[in-house]
Write a protein that binds this DNA or RNA. Structure first.
Lengths: 337, 337
DNA sequence: AACATCAACGAAAGCGCTTTCGATCCAGAG
DNA sequence: CTCTGGATCGAAAGCGCTTTCGTTGATGTT
């Protein structure tokens, strides 16, 4: 590894001047600057990030943490979509992402401690559980942070407009003549799940549609299997719904599966609308009508918010709500009277 | 931020002793060791990773790079699956992953340079193009590296058994009575694509099955759209196949789409078998029969291989081939004579 | 000629930690 | 009583870089 001292020796200047030249300080003449840069290139010099960070207290890294409540981690399309978008944009600003582990080489430490240890300049969290203590700890610290997919009073957050997502779905279903509309919900412990429930209820009430208790069934942690189970409950009802708004595409796909198994055809016998617009939604049969979350946009807004805090060196608390859109496909149909 | 000097002052020992106590050196008495550890906990001491790395030349990080030839990046289920598995296991060993960007804050540098700059202890690459110059540069360097999804003579690689994957597929199709079997291939520039072609041809020849040139159609970069296009070509043939082995699930799903569009029903009129076993495969209609790549296993083997190199401090060149399995679902059917 | 100004450069301290090499002290050996 | 060896501890250098502050010499001013 070659250092600025090697460059200093080679060029005849001091290490100070070399450093300054490399960082484009104004008090170095154009000529020596060029000479230094040239021999740096020639000798294959690369700065040492650790030394730099140690001395400047800036690491040009961002810590990324995602909760794995359901064990899928990065494998979930929403997560990987957001992270990928975030990565692309953070990259443009010069930052690398570091996916941190919880365990600091056998000393049992928290995520916050780990990120502090790593000296990241900021943290990006994708977490759906507003009261995860690990996340709370990070939020309460003084490090810049942006959290995605949940609401919070104490930091920058960005999430989809879950409320009007529900409105959008119900409105659409209603416009197709449905009035008996059920909701397969995400667990209340999950922020998005909770809000989508509210969106559903609000929209239903607004139209004076009945919301029997039995029409609101908990789909748990958004998995296909849980969606399938939830749909069974709905179908066993004495007065089953003609349409169901499902809080996640995976669950919706599971729901469609059971419907099919039970001999119902979609959308003829039952309309279904999902949430997320994962890739799969476009390729199941029938193609799933769904509320699209804009993972790209979420990623860019999150980046912007984080950059702003890093630059201003102070936390800013704000909510950035990303609009959702209805993707009209094949799983919903006008109700024939 | 509190340092070992703070601990030294507080406990009355020297910073040397503090450091040794924290690192469990043998020449510190049990008593002072405990005292130091206690006040460290009490004062909320956290080591500074940059200082540590600077002094030890070990960063406990692994650089991760994936080629984005098709622009999907981490969004592709195979990629995210492997990375997630790798992350989990690397974590257990105490390593963090760093997803690096190409541009080192405006100086245009290569991935290798970037990883060198960051001082990673090893590199993990997911790349399908054996002659990507960036990847070659990393392989030729002296840093420990493991590459996934391609073959190479000069480093550790781990990839699926693409050859017997083809064998498996053709064998299955043949056992169902098919003899006119086509292949929608991945581009030859992509290692997996090339080998799967060979697997297809070998298996066909082994059974004395004809392989007309028209039966081998290039599906490009494994996208759904390209799969759909490829299938069109196949269907336009004077003597179309009764079964097609597709080199990737996305392409297979695209292929099924066109088949359906053209009024063919699967598997009645045409059997299709894919490759990957992405989640979607289980939920399209009909459920896609496919060759499953074991992303989990790939991740763990990659971790092991990399750890070994890091510990031994020398590159080891080897090929680790992960077995694939046939996931029999609904998209293939016995050929009625 | 005396002075102020400015451009260009370097000495040195500091970032937080590790590690080598001594120094010190005390128990037990001779 | 002297000597040896082991157990504990610390001084100091070093990792590679940044940044403050001072020095030097050249230029322009009056």
């Amino acid at each position: 590894m070659i250092t600025i001292y090697d460059l200093a020796k080679k060029t005849g200047f001091s290490s100070t001047t070399v450093s300054k030249a490399l960082n484009d300080y104004p008090d170095v003449s154009k000529k020596t600057k060029q000479a230094i840069i040239d021999t740096a290139a020639e000798m294959g010099y690369l700065p040492n990030a650790h030394a730099q960070s140690l001395s400047t207290k800036k690491s040009w890294t961002i810590g990324v943490m995602f909760s794995e409540s359901n064990g899928v981690g990065m494998r979930h399309p929403f997560f990987s979509g957001v992270i990928e978008s975030f990565r692309k944009h953070a990259e443009k600003e010069g930052y690398d992402l570091i996916l941190a582990s919880r365990n600091l080489r056998n000393r049992g430490t928290s995520y916050l401690e780990h990120f502090l240890y790593r000296g990241v300049d900021g943290i990006m969290v994708i977490c759906s559980d507003p009261k995860d203590p690990q996340v709370q700890e990070m939020i309460n610290s003084s490090i810049p942070i942006v959290v995605i997919d949940m609401s919070n009073q104490d930091c920058s957050v960005v999430f989809s407009d879950n409320l009007s997502g529900g409105e959008l779905a119900i409105n659409y279903l209603y416009s197709l003549g449905h009035t008996k509309i059920a909701h397969i919900a995400g667990d209340h412990t999950i922020y998005a799940g909770k809000v989508r429930i509210k969106g559903y209820i609000d929209a239903m009430k607004k139209r004076n549609l009945p919301v029997p208790e039995s029409y609101l069934v908990n789909g748990g942690l958004f998995s296909i299997q849980e969606g399938a189970l939830a749909m069974e409950k709905l179908l066993d009802l004495a007065d089953p719904p003609t349409a169901v708004f499902v809080a996640g595409d995976h669950m919706a796909i599971g729901a469609m599966e059971t419907a099919k198994t039970k001999g119902l055809s979609i959308p003829e016998d039952l309309s279904i609308i999902g949430y997320d617009d994962i890739e799969m939604a476009s390729y199941v049969t029938p193609k799933l009508t769904t509320i699209k979350q804009d993972t790209d946009q979420i990623g860019v807004r999150a980046t912007q918010l984080l950059m702003k805090q890093i630059i201003q060196k102070k936390k800013i608390v704000t909510e950035e709500i990303i609009p959702v859109t209805l993707m009209e496909r094949e799983s919903c149909k006008r109700l024939e009277k």
